[in-house]
Design a protein around this nucleic acid. Sequence first.
DNA 1: CACAAGGCTTTTGTATACAAAAACCTCTCT
DNA 2: AGAGAGGTTTTTGTATACAAAAGCCTTGTG
Lengths: 219, 219
Amino acid sequence: MRASDKAYAALRDDIIEWRLLPGTVLAEVEQSERLGISRTPLREALSRLTAEGLTTAAGGRGVVVTDISLEDIDELFELRETLEGKAAALAAERGDPETFEQLRRELLQAPGLIGGQDPALHDYYGLVGRLDAAIDAAISNSYLAQAMRSLRVHLVRVRRLAADDAARLTAAAAEHAAIAEAIAAGNPRLAEAATTLHLHRSLSHVKATHTPHQKEHHG
Amino acid sequence: MRASDKAYAALRDDIIEWRLLPGTVLAEVEQSERLGISRTPLREALSRLTAEGLTTAAGGRGVVVTDISLEDIDELFELRETLEGKAAALAAERGDPETFEQLRRELLQAPGLIGGQDPALHDYYGLVGRLDAAIDAAISNSYLAQAMRSLRVHLVRVRRLAADDAARLTAAAAEHAAIAEAIAAGNPRLAEAATTLHLHRSLSHVKATHTPHQKEHHG
DNA sequence: CACAAGGCTTTTGTATACAAAAACCTCTCT
DNA sequence: AGAGAGGTTTTTGTATACAAAAGCCTTGTG
């Protein structure tokens, strides 16, 4: 693995997991020493992070970790609804019904996983990830898939702000099953509607349980 | 201006204007010598281009200029319809009617510009750009705006493939005026419909007048 | 003659030294 | 005491030297 990849992965993870808080200045020498690499690969990592929007270049003061405000969450979900709604509709038109029918069956059994311990929960998240991947594959539109991928980075960050209790996860599993069912049935409008419903509920949950992180490191 | 910015702008322009054809390998020493800079800023420029999708990393053989196939054009417009349709609808909800009413008036007079010489044509393109910028500003969603910006890079590349005759430009101006009118009227669904119509006609024109570029430099 | 293994060459990846620019602190002047 | 100019210091931007890896050509063998 290249040093720049390692630095990118480490910083990305630190930001997503809120170990590096918004406003934190990522000085080149400091971070390169912390990660045990030189400035050159670190700069490449910072470039990638900035391109993704996880950091922003702040003039001569290096790059700083981007903030996510409440308005950002609204904007994020507005774009998400647009992209994932379209994606679900396209998947209903172009996807293989059998694949999504299988996913639907598994999602209906997901509540069994949610009550359990960590490994079971991990299985549940993996299942949701497989639904996302199946939709990505079904739409066969690399540009749309790319746009959704770049969105998901920010969404993972938002999700870490919310408390995912068992009740919400059970409901979410049912909503995902509804999406899979609509896609399997080849009904684009229904798939889009199910997605819209799921995203609205997801947004409501995030905003309701939103726990503000501690103040950022403003200069 | 930083050397990396200069290299980025130069390469980006070369790719968009099809002076660097798809499949061309951008070797670091070669390009850095051509642009009169060292490898370090060149690499940063290549990183940015790759993040945008104009180039792709090809293992140990450096980065190569990305191709745009006919399927890519379809995918591009599919995403574009999704994003710009939503953007037009949001602009109708949130934008200032006076701004778009003014743009509509100017667009209706655009046919006068199209017949003229190069400077007038430049004015016309500037006018369309102002409509895009007004929509960007009206939606007040930085993530959606960012997604559209990254799309436009590829669309400019596609546009260079098509022959924009006076007849098409005149029709396009009328379509743009219809979009501006719908936004000024505060009618989201109409704005979205007008955008859909415009994009479909634009796509048809591109595919009809598409002039395949010469074969790429495959290794 | 086809194919694989080996070294040879080219190209990318990384580290470091140097240059330039930006920020910050200090000192002075009003 | 406040504001501004200048210098100092820190930080980023660039160049170059070196290391590693990937590709390619050569050579030997079945």
